[in-house]
């Protein structure tokens, strides 16, 4: 695996620089080092919450927030955390941030909180978060750790939303159901975007119920890994 365990630079650097290295921290997890399709972490929630796009988006934002800020806080404390209990300290940081997410979501959008149910709480056990803390934040400066956390959250979120779009579009015929911008795309009646008032070309259309089942997410992620590896040859046989 392409761990980015950079040795800490001894020379004084500006606190918030954004050069090539920093950009790589953000973009690497989107493709070459994607937490889901390459590292195969966080699969549980990726299968469970992606039957609709809207909850997937909310879940992604929650994970980006948790990965970003847990990396930042761990990195800020990295020289003070006693090595013997470092995992417990990391866990407390993650758990507090997840609780913050949970309380905020309950306050701002209760129906989505109900829909995501246990999966918000289960961000604590999402391997992406703790994996990045152990591999990166414990050895790097706060700004870079923050970017690494955000990058990994984005890589997770991108896959989650992509899977959500495919599943909702073919499973329910809609996009963003449950949100204020609900769109009806494919379906048999005139209220769907694909049919106009006069033509009902898709009157025969039936939703594919398999897409709503969690198993569909596994097929979709599998196909995504396949496509990614077929054009990105360096990912093949590195494991």
């Amino acid at each position: 695996m392409a761990e980015t365990n950079v040795k800490e630079a001894t020379t004084k650097e500006p606190l918030f620089q954004f050069g090539k290295k920093e950009r790589k921290l953000l973009t690497d997890p989107l493709n070459d080092n994607n937490p889901i399709t390459v590292q195969v972490l966080g699969i549980c929630s990726a299968l469970a919450v992606t039957s609709l796009v809207y909850p997937s988006v909310v879940m992604s934002i929650a994970v980006i927030f948790v990965t970003g800020f847990s990396s930042l806080f761990t990195s800020l404390l990295r020289n003070y955390i006693p090595k013997q209990v470092r995992m417990i300290v990391q866990l407390v940081i993650i758990a507090s941030l997840v609780t913050v997410v949970e309380l905020t979501l309950k306050y701002l959008n209760y129906p989505v909180y109900k829909q995501l149910s246990v999966y918000i709480g289960l961000i604590i056990t999402n391997c992406i978060v703790m994996g990045r803390l152990e591999a990166f934040s414990m050895a790097n400066k706060p700004w870079r750790s923050f970017l690494d956390g955000i990058g990994n959250g984005l890589g997770y979120g991108a896959i989650l939303i992509a899977v959500g779009v495919v599943r909702e579009l073919f499973g329910k015929g809609s996009l963003f159901a449950g949100s204020p911008i609900e769109m009806k795309i494919i379906g048999p009646t005139a209220e769907y975007f694909i049919n106009t008032e006069t033509s009902t070309l898709f009157g025969w259309y039936e939703n594919n119920n398999l897409m709503v089942l969690p198993a569909a997410a596994m097929f979709i992620i599998g196909i995504m890994i396949w496509i990614q590896r077929s054009y990105n040859q360096k990912l093949v046989d590195i494991s």
Binding site: Y80, I81, P82, Q84, V85, I88, V89, V92, S96, T99, V100, L103, T104, K106, Y107, Y110
Partner: peptide, 30 residues
């Protein structure tokens, strides 16, 4: 180690309790 853990849990506990108190009424209404 003991000092670190105690200080950290105390800070976290106070912050989370505070946030919960602030959002409680709204969450119950929701």
């Amino acid at each position: 180690i003991l000092g670190f853990i105690l200080a950290m849990t105390a800070i976290v506990a106070v912050l989370l309790t505070g946030l919960r108190e602030v959002t409680k009424a709204g969450a119950e209404r929701n």
